[in-house]
Structures are given as C-alpha cells and as structure tokens.
C-alpha cells in the first residue's frame, strides 16, 4: 500500500476584502490517503471539506502547507491531472447537450479522440448505469442522473484517484444507494477514492478510513473498526410493564424504543452483563436477545463535534 494523497499542515485563510474578519477555513490539516482505499472526509457544513478538496485540485491556493499527490508536489501537472477524477459539489452540467455529448467534451479535454474516446464513453456510461439515457438531453435528467453523469465525467480518463465532494448530498435514498454501489465497485477495481460528506451513514457503509473535521481542525482519524468500538451491550426484552421499566431506569439502565412492552435495554460500560440481565428478570421482563452494540458513526460524530462546540461555547462564556 502506498500513499496517494499526502497533506502536511495544509492551511487556508480566506482574507476578507473590506476589513472584516478573515475566515480560517482550514488550520494545519495533515492527512494521508492510501492507495486502494475509500477515505471518508467528514464534517458538518462549513468545516472546510470543499476548501481542502479545491486546494488538492489547484483551484485555490494554500495559505501554507504542503500537498503531495502520487509523490509529486507539482499537483497541477498534466501527469497528475490525468490521474485524478473530480466531482465538484453541486455542479451543474450544460443542459443543452446529450449525456454522451458532455462526456465527449470532457474526454476531449483529456486529449482523447476517435475510437479511444468512444470506448471510454461507452465504458463509463455503462459503469454509471446511464446507457438507457445517453442520447437524451441533460435537460430532462433527474438529479440522480445528473450526478451519475458527473461521476462519469470524473472517470472518463480512467484515473487512479477519484475525489468526490458530497457525491450523494441531495439525492433520494435509491439514487444514493446506486451511487454508493458504483463507488464500492470502483474501489474493488482498485481505484483510490476520497469522499467528502456530512451524511455519515453513507460513508460509514463504504469507507475504509475516515477523518472527521470540524471548523478546519482534524478531530478524529482512523479506520472505521478502530474508531467504532463495541461500546455497549443491548438486551432486547419483552413483557415489560410500566413499573418494570421504571425499575430498570432506577437501576442505571437506559431504555430505547420502548413500545407496548418491548424495549431495548442499553447496558452501560462498566456494568456487568449478568447483573443487567438479573435486573431485567427481577423487573418481570422476558429476555429476547443479548448482543454487543457498536457505536454508529453518527454517535461518534456527535460526541466529537458536540464536544468541540461545547468547549467553544464554554470558552466564549
């Protein structure tokens, strides 16, 4: 495994024009993306994801810090450009063209022509599942179809690296699932993907490694397995009545999704599981199942970002 994208103390400050406050969009960000992985670059809106990605593509320029892509610091060289596919956030594609025409345009920008170009167009259109609509005008495309064409234009040169800025934001659940499936397939083909998102479920499902950033700072960094430890045990119970439920809560257990006698009982860290089962029994409940429960990325996110914003509020107060 080798490092494909490397940033070192990458910093971006947007200077305000008329003596207002400068925006410190990114503060000394360092991360690495390894070849063949899906790297999830996560953070709430305004945390600096798009800023980072634009710097990787040379669309804006770092205030300080270093970027190395495929071992080269000359990130705008044609060699590097040939090997990066980029899907910008919320881009619009000229709607007077047909799906395949827009891909032809982008392919020509890579210097493709003739049979090579036609083969690549066929391949990417097929990959993103747009063969049926390739001859239709973009004007008539749904949001999901546009996004798939966007993905296709990023793939037209068969790049090694794909950088996707919020690829599933604003799509319906089915379109999301389709995009996600395409991304997983691309990883299986050996491509390296960097995906930014503020929608965690999406990324959790397909990423190998993630970073969570907040207000331009890296908060958490690691593989999903490292970060999402099995933190708790959950006991599913039935036949639980009102007084029983009260009793459980008094003794330190938390109830989730309690409906008509059924509930999930969370056993906090530190409490012995047998102990918890005993408590449930004595409250008159029947044990359905007992299983370890993994924290979700969403919970991790809230814990990390929530902690950061609380700390900020306390500092301000």
């Amino acid at each position: 495994m080798s490092t494909v994208i490397h940033t070192e103390n990458l910093t971006k400050t947007y200077e305000s024009a008329f003596g207002g406050q400068d925006v410190h969009a990114l503060k000394s960000m360092s991360f690495e993306v390894q070849s063949g992985e899906i790297f999830g670059y996560l953070g709430p809106n305004g945390s600096g994801k798009t800023t980072t990605i634009k710097m990787l593509l040379g669309l804006i320029f770092p205030t300080s810090g270093k970027i190395r892509i495929l071992g080269s610091e000359d990130i705008t060289s044609n060699h590097i450009r040939m090997n990066i596919g980029y899907l910008p956030e919320g881009a619009y594609y000229p709607d007077f063209l047909r799906g395949e025409e827009i891909l032809k345009y982008y392919g020509q920008l890579y210097g493709l022509s003739g049979a090579d170009l036609r083969n690549r167009i066929d391949a990417v259109i097929d990959l993103v599942g747009m063969s049926h609509a390739r001859k239709r005008l973009m004007r008539g495309y749904s949001k999901g179809m546009r996004q798939r064409i966007g993905l296709a234009q990023a793939l037209i040169s068969d790049p090694k690296i794909l950088i996707l800025d919020e690829p599933t934001t604003g799509l319906d659940p089915i379109a999301r699932k389709e995009i996600r499936d395409i991304l997983a397939r691309l990883r299986d083909e050996g491509k390296t993907l960097m995906i930014s998102s503020h929608e965690l479920m999406e990324v959790e499902l397909i990423s190998n490694r993630i970073s969570i950033i907040y207000e331009g700072d890296m908060k958490v960094h690691g593989t999903i397995d490292e970060l999402l430890v099995d933190r708790e045990v959950v006991v599913e119970v039935t036949d639980l009545d009102e007084p029983g439920a009260k009793q459980l809560e008094e003794r330190g257990l938390t109830l989730e999704d309690a409906i008509s006698g059924r509930a999930r009982v969370r056993v906090p860290e530190g409490m012995d599981v047998y102990n918890a089962i005993e408590i449930c029994r004595s409250a008159g409940a029947r044990i359905g199942s007992i299983a370890p429960r993994r924290e979700t990325l969403e919970e991790l996110f809230v814990r990390v970002v929530g902690g950061a914003s609380r700390a900020k509020a306390e500092k301000a107060a």
Binding site: L57, G58, R81, P88, L109, A154
Partner: peptide, 13 residues
C-alpha cells in the same frame, strides 16, 4: 457560477 469551470480546470487544461 454553475461550477462547470471546476470540472474543466481539474482536467489537463
């Protein structure tokens, strides 16, 4: 405005 420029300038252009 419509961000097409991002898709073009990220190509070898």
């Amino acid at each position: 405005e419509n961000k097409v420029i991002y898709t073009v300038l990220s190509k070898p252009v």
